[in-house]
Design a protein around this nucleic acid. Structure first.
Length: 278
DNA sequence: GGTACTACCTGGAGGC
DNA sequence: TGCCTCCAGGTAGTAC
């Protein structure tokens, strides 16, 4: 599942491969992948002749800054989306949803098994947040200076939700998903069921540090291999072997040997060690 | 406003 | 072997 490290890995790859490349055409194989504009013909016509100036990331959203100025291409990979930089003669995968052509030889291909991924074209003179509405609700990025202990404490102090549920809320921490929320809670020794308002002040700083550390480690390794994540060159990440608790139900804790447990919180699986996390 | 729940969707795993 | 059911999960929408 692409979370912040995977999206960041994709962004870096795209910045290496696609800058100053001009979109010469495209093909939309699944209409609902295009969230805006509502007509796929308008999407293709709008984006044609655009040049990619740079790729940015906000939470799990990828934003391509285009030329003509003030136009943007937004991409969210959701659960199974992949952006692949390929030769145009590469055989089409059955889950190919959108193709953006760059001349006669190259294309940026959006492959998405579960079809949750989306793309937006933001026309000139329109606020990006008004088209990609999810951006308006995004919290600060974990790597930004604003992600302080005080910020996190303020966000959590009044909530009666379990901390795991809160960490998945993109209006509290942008970019965190199920995998890294479990890992960060393990590293900070906090049970996922702990009610946010019941967290003690000394627990907030280790939690903030753990969030940054697990995300940084995964980015450094090129993203996780827990799922079918591939970078833009189609290469799998390297982080999978280092998971402390995620997807290790029934296996011994790497620290104390206690059995890793799995429960459901907010409809999502949570993995934890009841010995190491209190 | 805060929280919980559901739908969206496909393919793999497991049970029979 | 084939069919069926369950599960995975990010986000938006809805209900309370």
């Amino acid at each position: 599942m692409p979370e912040l490290p995977e999206v960041e890995t994709v962004r870096r790859g795209l910045n290496q491969l696609t800058l100053n490349q001009t979109i010469t055409g495209g093909d939309v194989l699944l209409q609902r992948t295009i969230a805006y504009p509502f007509s796929i013909e308008e999407f293709i016509e709008s984006i044609k002749k655009s040049t990619i100036k740079s790729w940015h990331r906000r939470g799990k959203y990828l934003l391509a800054e285009l030329s003509p100025p003030s136009t943007w291409l937004g991409v969210h990979l959701r659960m199974t989306g992949q952006l692949l930089w390929l030769n145009r003669d590469e055989p089409l995968h059955k889950h190919t949803r959108v193709r953006l052509f760059f001349g006669e030889e190259q294309e940026l291909r959006f492959v998405d098994q579960r079809t949750f991924g989306q793309m937006w074209y933001v026309p000139p003179g329109v606020a990006v947040e008004s088209i990609i509405t999810g951006l308006a609700k995004l919290a600060v990025d974990p790597f930004s200076p604003e992600f302080t202990v005080e910020y996190l404490a303020n966000k959590l102090k009044k909530s009666r939700r379990p901390i795991k549920t809160a960490l998945l809320d993109q209006s509290i921490v942008a970019g965190l998903g199920n995998i890294y929320a479990d890992e960060a809670l393990f590293k900070s020794g906090i049970l996922p069921t702990t009610i946010c308002a019941d967290l003690q002040s000394p627990q907030i700083e280790p939690l903030r540090t753990a969030i940054i550390e697990v995300l940084s480690a995964s980015i450094a390794a090129g993203g996780t291999t827990f799922s079918n994540f591939l970078n833009v060159k189609g290469v799998n990440g390297n982080y999978g072997g280092e998971a402390w608790v995620y997807n290790r139900t029934g296996k011994p804790c790497k620290v104390c040997g206690n059995v890793i447990q799995r429960i459901k919180l907010g409809g999502r699986s949570s993995h934890f060690c009841s010995q190491c996390q209190k």
